[in-house]
Design a protein around this nucleic acid. Structure first.
Lengths: 201, 201, 201, 201
DNA sequence: TATGAATGAGTATTCATTCAT
DNA sequence: TATGAATGAATACTCATTCAT
């Protein structure tokens, strides 16, 4: 009798987490509309009413995943913000490091990333926030004389996001390249440009 | 009185074009699933059966829009391919010109662009094709000595697309900037990089 | 200008007859509901409104085919009714002849037959009429002493129709046997029965 | 109060069976196309989605009814096949018995019979199978010397089916006669024929 | 006589969601 | 905590039929 009402041996929290995980995969793979509540619960070996025990509705589980993504992004942003005084030589490697961290997070959470970056209606908001954060860092670095004074940091920040997004979906998530490689590629290109110039660095 | 509610004798082609146009707007604004056939026809002052007179089903009108976008992109790609021997000084302006053309097309067809670049399941394909085209041009220009020999043209092409996509959605379509401005911004950044170097150009 | 308004060179009657013929084939092949007006007119290289020029609606063209069948059946019945005084020896061959005539009609009008015998809601009526006609003939023949007095002519008539119907669809329309063969088979069986008896006829 | 409109907690199997039963009646009465899913569920005091809980679609419930008919026919066929060595005197009564059993089944399942014998696209198949079964039995009986050696058993089998079908629809289902009567009528006619011959039995 | 264009009225089907247990 | 059973509300799609020319 101690086992009644918990037939699968799963605690409530476990069922909830399972639904969340499966939902993330389904949403990422098939998008919001093509993902059916019935499919999610079937895949979790649960019934439909159980779903509504843990989530208000389909929208709310999606939102929860969006928020999960957003919150973790915030954490990452906080880390990268705390920069000490820069030294010329280390700025590039620091930027590479930050980009790498971001990509590493994406790589570790491919489903959440697909949701937060592509599917979510709040994707724009989220990206805008990252852009803002990056721009602030860049402004600081321009002030510090590391980049040319006339640099349009907003454009750079937007471009960086654009590149990161693109390479995330064509190289990172398909596991063609590692976060570090991609980060290096991106930062080198943006910092040095395409022209050939005798020597620098 | 001759104009009352699109008389029955309207040309079939006109009705078809109208549906196509409205569908593009609806899809762009609300996505595939949120767009209802009933809404499209209502907005065209037509009835549902008329929709099926011109399109096999909802999917097929969407595909037609995808293809429209793809075909026009092809045309653009063809134009940019036909380059004569380059002269150092004009390469940058030529690239700017090409990017500008692309952006101008997007600006003139915002709905189609949203469909072809975002909503379409073939968006990846389409973008991959553009990337390939750009890479080929870049390879040619590297050969011609305009850019540094070790430039990873594939990364550059992917990055360029990433940036274009991003700026299209945050600056171009909201009409914050004109194609020319954005094109200049992008190309300058990618070609020159972020570093400060005495003088060039 | 003499040719205007009769583009296909078809007179009205010709178009009407064509539609009727095609409809018969379609109904016979696919049944009432699966037969679409659009299919009929397409097959006749005409437009849908033209259909309604000649027939009130889909039901009415079907009814017209039903009636066509019924009327021709009547004619046949009339013929078989006009029997002179019988002679023992010729009764069987006369019955065979009548059955053969009926089957020959079916064979010559397979589509109409399928409609009138199977598809029509009036099929029962039509068959009932034939049964009645046959029964009358049989009663006359029983009276004339050709068959045993206790013969239940109604049962025989119903049976005869049942057999004719069955063999029409499994042997006649698929052209496995000719009307004459089938008629002989049927009448022999019904008249002589299955038992082995020294000799008769 | 416990009976009010089939409470939500009804057994699924009950609802399913109910739908099946009502569907059989509707199909039998109105044919496939004129039978609406909406009508079926309304008559079962259920909603449309419930229908799709138990059946894939309208076609599939129809097929299930077809199969039900076919399977029960098979059982009947099996029974009639297991015949011991015959004795002259009992063959006729045995045949009558078999026909009666068949008719009794039809009488007990009028809806299923209408579906399986008339409406089903597989009706021909089903009947062909019965014919084959009957023919086998007849062949055996001819071998045993009960019937004349030159009897075309195939014709007899087809005729028997034709008669049975006809009398089923005009006498049995309208409850004008009982299975036994009809069976006797049919078998007597087929075995003895229509001619008057001194005596036999 | 003929039709291009259009539609009213349906009809199967799907899905997120809930009730009673 | 869990679910068997059920449904409200919507939506794509079809077809016979008609209007204006």
């Amino acid at each position: 009798m101690a086992e009644r009402g918990r037939p699968k041996g799963a605690s409530g929290e476990e069922s909830r987490a399972l639904l969340l995980e499966i939902a993330a995969k389904e949403f990422a793979q098939h998008g919001y509309h093509e993902t059916k509540v019935s499919t999610i619960v079937k895949s979790a070996s649960l019934s439909q009413p159980t779903f509504y025990l843990y989530f208000k509705n389909k929208e709310s589980i999606f939102e929860e995943l969006e928020n999960l993504f957003r919150l973790r992004m915030m954490d990452l942003a906080k880390k990268s913000r705390l920069q000490p005084a820069l030294e010329q030589a280390t700025v590039k490697s620091r930027i590479i490091h930050n980009v790498k961290e971001l990509l590493a997070f994406f790589a570790k959470n491919p489903n959440l990333t697909r949701i937060g970056l592509y599917l979510s209606t709040k994707a724009d908001e989220i990206k805008a926030q990252i852009v803002k954060q990056i721009k602030e860092n860049l402004d600081y670095e321009v002030d510090a004389g590391y980049f040319r004074k006339d640099l349009d940091t907003h454009i750079v920040a937007e471009s960086l996001i654009g590149i990161i997004e693109r390479l995330t979906f064509v190289q990172l998530l398909p596991k063609q390249k590692k976060p570090e490689e991609i980060a290096t590629d991106i930062v080198n290109l943006l910092i040095d440009g395409m022209l050939d110039r005798g020597s620098h660095d």
